[in-house]
Every structure is written in structure tokens, then in C-alpha cells.
Design a protein around this nucleic acid. Structure first.
Lengths: 247, 247
DNA sequence: TTTCTAAGTGTCATTTTTACACTTTCAAAT
DNA sequence: ATTTGAAAGTGTAAAAATGACACTTAGAAA
């Protein structure tokens, strides 16, 4: 009977992280670059790696994310498991795995995690096998390593569903933000235009916003009022959810 | 470089199935009984087992479900991964694993699947290590093997969320059903009373029901009209979802 | 024929949704 | 100083959806 050393890497299970950001124009996602010797289209990958046997999945996701991008203390939520036996079928991926894995041919199931962060709060620095790490507009991504494009697509869909029942959009904005920025964020996540006045009415009714009585400065048009969100009400809605943010 | 035989069992990854049914009174779930020599509270378990390296996760869930309960060709949807390193901490579970697994101490991550079935369409027959298989009311379950109670709880919550945006409830009812049965089903899933008239109005507006112009027979009260659901409209709503079934 | 049981039905007041266009404020350019 | 460009901000009316609420009906059994 084999007694495993439990701080070994588990060759069969990995985690991958879909970290969304918002650059005030577009929804973005954090990718690592595996370097020049990859095929151009699949150089980029979600940050991810094998788990250790003595850590739980959430811990693994946080560890791996920090190791590859230096981002730490981020709330990650599980998206699901991806485990097609052919997920490692691209030749470029197989070559790459040989260079970093002890068992490059092993069947790997990956557990995907999703998070939303304020771009300005975290500056990604690549390390480990990531040659660089940075934000890419999700709409401009058409290919990724392994099955990461499929994972990203699932993450986008989950985000669309969630934003209608939880106030998660706020995690992507800086402390102080304008209603127009929030509006643009919702439009880019839901990928459709939303009526300005109706959007504002709905958001205001959630009671989640505090008007800072402070204006934007230096913009070449009527300056916007700045808002922050009301933490108490935010937590309340995060837990209870709401049924009525359906556009 | 170890080349794995890919039709081997993977010692680190399992699937577990949460199969919901409805007995016209309560929401039920399909459990297997691991037999008398287990501690009473945790004799019962969700049907689940290790995956093979050459099957994908969906296939594995279907195979395992059929092997343990004889149910086949069921649409299973992934719930998520459960992988606490301590999920095998109950002594009774460890003892049991020694009797059925080649590597009983291995770290196992399980991928949970959920399905909704018409109880009348499937008659579970236990096999493999399941000594029996049958339906139990979800409200009467307070303990299960491993982390299966936690998985069941997550499945119930997902079901509550989903039933508001997809017409899934119909999968649990027989071909012909009454509006009262549908009403009771929704109440038992959402776990709260719903106004009869408002419920009927909403369901009718979905346009998913076809009145069969046929009445219940032999009931000691006014017989109900029977309905089936309109497959075309059902598929439409399954894909598109709806925002407005919020009670 | 009476009794029991669940089925089935409508309205009104309130809230929510949708569609839609003009005025305001600032910076920059002239 | 005035004009221009650009996004911010604001209200209303019609239509639809929601929530609360109580009595009549059809059949089986006694």
C-alpha cells in the first residue's frame, strides 16, 4: 500500500485562473506569455499549474496565481472542472509541458477559478515559467494554450449571468468612479447597449452608491460626479443577491 | 519518461452524481447504500467513483452512474469540483476505501454532476459496490459519506438559482402533469409557499404548457386538467433562459 | 343528497419597465 | 471673450408585471 508524501505535486490536477479587469474601455483578462518559442497564437495562457496534495483547491489557485503573476490575496471563485483527455493535444503545448513537467504526458484535469480585480490595485510581475504577465482585452483574444480559450468563454458567460444577480461589477472599478464608467462596464460585460437613464435609475435604486459630492477634474466636457460604493449595502447584496437587475 | 496506459483508473479524480427526482410530494435524490458495516449515518452516499484516463468527465459521470445504479442516457450537468484534502477524514470512509480502492490513501478531487429525472422513467438497480440504490427525500438527509452532504447542499442551491432562469422543473415531472403538481414542485425546490394564482399566471405566460384537454380520473375532488409541455418552446427557453420567473 | 377535497378563476392597486430628447458644464480652440 | 465639442445629467407617460386576496366548481365517497 503506497503511502503518498502529501506535499508532492499531484500530476493529475491543476488549477487555472481567469482574472478579469476593466481598463475603463474594455473587459480585460490577465494572461501569461510562455515565450517566443511557442506558436504565435498560443503563446499566451491563463496562469495555472499543478496542485500540491496537501492544499485545497482554493489555496492552490491562490498560490499558483501568486507564483506566476505576483498577485496575492485575491478572492477567487470556482468556475468548474475542465478535463477533456485531449486538452493537451496541440503539439506546441506538448513540447512546452516536456520542458516544465515531471510527467508531461499525464492526464490532467484542471479546475478553473475566476476573479474580478481593480487593475490599478495590482501590478502583475511575471515569474516562474511565465516570461511576462499582463492584461489583454477579452474581445481581442481568439486563441490560447490548451483549452484556455474554452475556459475563458465559460468564464465570460458566468460573469454575464452573475452580474444580473450580484453587485460584482464594482470589484472591477477603482475606489472612486463615475456612473458612466459603471455603465460602460456593464455594457462591455453584457455585450449590448443599455439605456443610460434606465441604467442609472436601476443602479440608484439598489442603494449601493454613495455620492462623494466631488467632481472629475480636467475633462474637456461636463465633469462627472464621483461615487464610491456603500460597503454595508454591498455586502448585503453580495450575500442575498437580487432578482431584478435584468436588462 | 513514464508513458501511462490511458485506460487505467486515475487514482486522483472521481465523479459524483446528484440525481434529483420528485415523488409528487418532495424533492428526492438518488443514493446508494454501502452496506451494514458502515456507521449508520454515513452508509448512504452519492453514486460516484474514480474516472479512467481515457474518458472525459461527462462520460465518466455517465458510466459511473450506470455502473452503480443502472440509470443510463441521462443528461448530467457539471456542478463543480470538491477537493478538500480532508474530505476522506471520516474513519468509516477510510475503512471502506481500503476495501475497494487500489490506492485508498490517495488524494482525490471529485467532480460533481447534477441531473433531474422523472422518477417513473428510471428504476434504479444497484450493482458494483452499491448494495442498494434508491430515492431519499432531500429534507430528510442530514449526513452522507465523505463530503457528499456538502455536495448535495451545493446542488440544491444551484437548483434554486437555475429554476428561476430556466424551465428545468419540467424534467422532474411525468409526461402528463397537473398545474398543482408543478406548483408543489416549485414550492419544494424554492422551499417557500408561492401564491397559487400568481404562480399559474406566470407559468402560463411562459407559453410552455400545452393543455391536453384531458382530466385526472378517480380523485376524490374536482379533477385537474392535464398538461404536457411544448417541446419547441421548452428548448427555446432552455437555451435563452428567462429573467422573470422570480418569486 | 350531503360532505369533503382540491381545482380553478379575476381584479385592483402598486411597482417596474421601456422608450425617448434636451440642457448643462467644462476645456480647448479661435 | 466667444464659440465649439463632448460627455453628464435629467423626467415623463404608456405598458407590463407584480402581489394580495376569496369564492365557486367538479368529482368521489359516505
Amino acid at each position: 500500500m503506497l503511502k503518498k508524501n502529501n506535499s508532492e505535486l499531484n500530476p493529475n490536477v491543476s488549477v487555472d485562473c481567469v482574472i478579469f479587469g476593466f481598463d475603463m474601455e474594455n473587459l480585460t483578462v490577465l494572461l501569461i506569455d510562455r515565450g517566443e518559442n511557442q506558436f504565435p497564437g498560443s503563446r499566451m495562457a491563463l496562469p495555472g499549474n499543478l496542485i500540491y496534495n496537501d492544499e485545497n483547491l482554493d489555496q492552490a489557485a491562490n498560490r499558483v496565481l501568486e507564483e506566476l503573476t505576483s498577485l496575492k490575496d485575491i478572492y477567487l471563485e470556482q468556475l468548474g472542472a475542465f478535463g477533456d483527455p485531449n486538452r493537451i493535444s496541440k503539439e506546441s503545448d506538448r513540447v512546452w509541458l516536456k520542458s516544465i513537467r515531471a510527467e508531461p504526458e499525464a492526464r490532467v484535469i484542471t479546475i478553473a477559478y475566476v476573479s474580478l480585480v481593480k487593475i490599478s490595485d495590482y501590478i502583475p510581475h511575471a515569474s516562474s515559467f511565465a516570461q511576462s504577465a499582463g492584461w489583454a482585452s477579452v474581445n481581442e483574444i481568439h486563441e490560447l494554450a490548451f483549452d484556455h480559450f474554452e475556459i475563458l468563454t465559460a468564464a465570460k458567460e458566468q460573469l454575464k449571468r452573475k452580474i444580473k444577480i450580484q453587485p460584482i461589477g464594482f470589484n472591477l472599478l477603482p475606489e472612486k468612479f463615475t456612473l458612466s464608467q459603471l455603465h460602460r462596464l456593464y455594457e462591455s460585460i453584457l455585450d449590448k447597449p443599455l439605456d443610460k437613464r434606465n441604467f442609472r435609475r436601476k443602479v440608484q435604486k439598489l442603494g449601493i452608491l454613495t455620492n462623494l459630492k466631488e467632481k472629475q477634474r480636467g475633462v474637456p466636457h461636463k465633469p462627472s460626479e464621483l461615487y464610491k460604493f456603500n460597503e454595508e449595502r454591498y455586502l448585503e447584496l453580495s450575500q442575498d443577491g437580487f432578482d431584478n437587475f435584468g436588462f
